[in-house]
Simulated assay, not measured.
Amino acid sequence: MSPGQIAALVAAGAFVLLVILLAIPLIKLGRTLDEATIAIRKAHQNSDPIFSGANTTITHVNAQLERVDGITANARAVTGNVSALTSLFTATLGGPLVKAAALSYGVSKAIRARRKASEAPGKHLRRRTARGGKR
């Protein structure tokens, strides 16, 4: 054997070793892709019940939202009615009640003033005399 043939034999051996070393990660990568394919297939099979459950849940939520919309509309109508009733009450009874309150305040103030005047008769008499009244 010549040295060229030995060098070719060593190069061929190195090439085979390189192919084997590169084949191992490729085989592992192929297994990983197979597992990923199986996992995707299982996820696809299990997603149908999840989606149907989600659809059922969304249907129930929509029904509840329709009820809440009805309740909100009724509350809005009640609020409008209460506002109208308050305006009516203020228009019809508010004025007379304010007048009655003012009258009672004035009467109570006048009574207090009379009581103070009756407790201190000297002051009352001096006022009369200062105005030119009799003593």
Rank of each mutant, 00 (worst) to 15 (best):
M1R: 11
G4F: 12
A7G: 03
A8Y: 02
L9I: 09
L9A: 15
V10C: 09
F15C: 13
L17S: 13
I20V: 09
L22G: 09
L22F: 11
I24F: 15
I24S: 10
L26V: 09
K28F: 13
L29P: 04
G30W: 11
L33P: 01
A36G: 07
I38Y: 05
A39D: 03
K42V: 09
Q45Y: 08
N46E: 07
S47A: 06
S47Q: 08
P49C: 00
F51M: 06
F51N: 07
G53F: 05
T57Y: 13
T57E: 12
T57W: 08
V61T: 01
V61C: 01
N62G: 00
N62W: 01
L65Y: 14
L65G: 08
L65N: 08
E66K: 09
E66D: 13
E66Q: 10
E66L: 10
V68E: 12
D69N: 15
D69K: 15
G70D: 03
T72W: 10
A73S: 14
A75C: 02
R76T: 15
G80A: 08
N81Y: 06
F89P: 02
A91C: 05
T92Q: 13
G95R: 01
G95Q: 00
P96W: 01
P96C: 00
V98R: 09
K99G: 04
K99D: 06
K99V: 07
A101V: 04
G106D: 06
G106T: 03
K109L: 13
A110C: 05
A110V: 04
I111W: 04
A113K: 13
K116P: 05
A117F: 05
A120I: 01
P121C: 00
K123V: 09
L125K: 12
R126T: 08
T129Q: 15
T129Y: 15
A130I: 06
A130G: 11
A130S: 13
A130L: 12
K134A: 14
R135I: 03
